[in-house]
Amino acid sequence: MAWEFVLTTLYFAFASLVGTLCIKLGYDKGSAANKLHILLVNTAVICCYLMWAIVWMAQWNPLIVPILKAEGE
């Protein structure tokens, strides 16, 4: 199974968690501002994760394979 996919997904989840905690603990600017910052961090992580996951899945079971160019082509 795709253990690598799950692992990296966990990494991203971990990144989101770390970001959220950092804001809660290290960059506390009041409840309203924290909400915004947490949303921003998580949106960023989700965007990055989406892109990674899409590219990973697209290469998982490829229908075509790389065909190298011959010399002088």
Binding site: E4, W56, Q59, P62, V65, A70
Partner: peptide, 16 residues
Amino acid sequence: ATTVGLIKLGDQPYPF
């Protein structure tokens, strides 16, 4: 490699 192409080794694709 230049005719039918390379082949994927194993189940996992390039990790990142």
